[in-house]
Design a protein around this nucleic acid. Structure first.
Length: 455
RNA sequence: GCCGGGAUAGGGUAGUGGUCAUCCUGCGGGACUGUGGAUCCCUCGAGCCGGGUUCGAAUCCCGGUCCCGGCCCCA
């Protein structure tokens, strides 16, 4: 007996049907927003992902050498592949590009509730748009995608512009740790670190505690006050360029760093962009909480970041994350503003309720002497309904018993008598009533029954 | 990678260091070679893997695998 590999799952017919029904509802929303599906390879060069997320991710990537000695990785996510595709073959397509994907991804992690080694992500990337408009659209669409399957997520939106400005006044070496501590909500450790480097007056602690209404106004005050705050450590502002040069980073690391530092400070400073985005979001009718504690811990995010939570998932309650980022230049393209989100499909499946039941099949029962006629009839009826015929050589009564056990709604009985008279028996398994009809009439009946169940 | 709880027919379970193991359900067949669901009967089907202790292990011990909850992490 061979078991499944750890962290993988089988989906029996019922579950596979549920997943497809939910997936189609969500995809339908994105199509209606004008997004088009893209499909990328299941495996990529390992480098694609280390370039985006750093060498640290190798630990959690399924990677291997192929027979040609190449370092290959099963995709752990889809933003990098999609941006790779954009840079490689779509960079001169009319902007903006609205792309979505739904695909399985792989990560070598400890499985737990809502987390598997093979999992499915659904997401979008809006490439080449204007900041506020793009961000508002993507967040509003994420909300609608979730609502389409009956989930009202708790949306938290943060903005990295201001925190990045604050961090400009802090030595380069500490910036990443500060972001990490914020992301992990470790307030005490954060406060300690800020004090130890003399950065407690920058307003970081207050900023990240700002939530909901009024948060933005206060953030603007903090922003205005920032220019007058200086911290007295060793030339923080100029430290990073020399540090970068001195570090002897690899070519790739250097490319990553310059892609980030290449952004103009002004573009990160503008809280007015964020305010505008929130106004647009309001116009979309989306209810979200401003929360400057959302920083997503990732270096390539450039502006608005957001996370959506759902209840009922234990420790893994985040079902969606996204924001604006700059990755095109990292992959060799020109700098392009992009916004996207990724949705954890498996976690969504944990919290969605009932979905449409599958269409019940029609069973065509026959007597052995007319099997070939039954097959011809079944072939014809499959144009209007799922049709099953016996392949076990069962007696008529056993065929009916079997039809009953699979909850078939109708059974059509074909025998010598029916063929001679040209009228087949259509039996309703629920009521037990049956009538004799021509095959054309049966087609009509099934057509309308089918239309009802799929409506 | 860490902590804790688990693993007995397809699903759900019982039990004991001593005859290759309980019951329910399920699958297949039959009673029923042209009308299902009920009932009855028959068949099929199991102690995660490897080692150890023992006269004897599914039971006790160790290691592994997988599952569940949590930690770390979460692009």
């Amino acid at each position: 007996m061979i078991q499944r590999p750890r962290g993988t799952r089988d989906f029996p017919p019922e579950e596979a049907h549920r997943r497809r029904a939910v997936r189609e509802k969500m995809i339908d929303v994105m199509e209606r927003w004008g997004y088009r599906e893209v499909v990328t390879p299941t495996f990529e060069h390992l480098e694609l992902f280390t370039l985006k997320s750093g060498e640290g991710v190798i630990e959690e990537i399924y990677s291997f050498k192929d027979k040609g000695g190449r370092d290959i990785a099963l995709r752990p996510e889809l933003t990098a592949p999609v941006m790779r595709m954009y840079v490689g073959e779509l960079h001169s397509a009319p902007k903006p590009l609205r792309l979505y994907y739904f695909a399985n991804c792989f990560r070598y992690e400890r499985p737990q509730k809502g987390r598997f080694r093979e999992f499915w992500q659904l997401g979008c990337e809006l490439i080449g748009g204007r900041r506020s408009d793009s961000e508002a659209e993507v967040i509003a669409m994420a909300d609608e995608v979730l609502r389409a399957v009956g989930i009202r997520g708790d949306i938290h939106i943060g903005y990295l512009g201001l925190i990045r400005s604050m961090l400009k006044k802090v030595p380069e070496a500490h910036r990443q740790s500060i972001m990490r501590l914020i992301d992990k909500k470790e307030r005490d450790a954060l406060r300690e670190l800020l004090q130890s480097i003399g950065a407690e007056d920058l307003g970081i602690m207050e900023l990240i505690s700002l939530k909901g209404k009024g948060a933005l106004d206060r953030a603007e005050e903090l922003s205005a006050a920032l220019s007058s705050v200086e911290i007295s450590t060793e030339g923080a502002g100029s430290a990073h360029s020399s540090l970068e040069a001195a570090c002897g980073e690899s070519r790739r690391e250097g490319a990553r760093a310059s892609a980030r530092s290449g952004r103009s400070p002004e573009s990160e400073m503008k809280l007015s962009d964020f305010r505008e985005m929130l106004e647009l979001l309001d116009a979309y009718g989306v209810d979200a909480t401003v929360d400057f504690e959302i920083v997503r811990g990732l270096e390539y995010y450039t502006g608005t970041v957001f996370e959506i939570y759902a209840s009922g998932l234990g420790a893994q309650n985040q079902i969606c994350g996204g924001g604006s980022y700059e990755l095109a230049s990292l992959f060799g393209g020109s700098e392009t503003f992009s916004t996207g989100f990724g949705l954890g499909f498996d976690r969504i499946m944990e919290v969605v309720g009932e979905v449409d039941p599958p269409i019940p099949p029609v069973v065509l029962a026959f007597t052995p002497d007319v099997k070939v006629d039954a097959i011809r009839i079944a072939k014809r009826l499959r144009n209007v309904s799922p049709v099953i015929i016996d392949v076990m050589g069962r007696s008529l009564s056993a065929q009916l018993k079997s039809a009953s056990s699979i909850n078939a709604e109708h059974v059509i009985i074909v025998g010598r008598r029916e063929l001679d008279s040209g009228k087949l028996v259509l039996r309703n398994m629920t009521s037990g009533s049956q009538e004799e009809l021509s095959i054309e009439a049966i087609e009509e009946r099934l057509r309308s029954a089918f239309a009802r169940t799929t409506k």
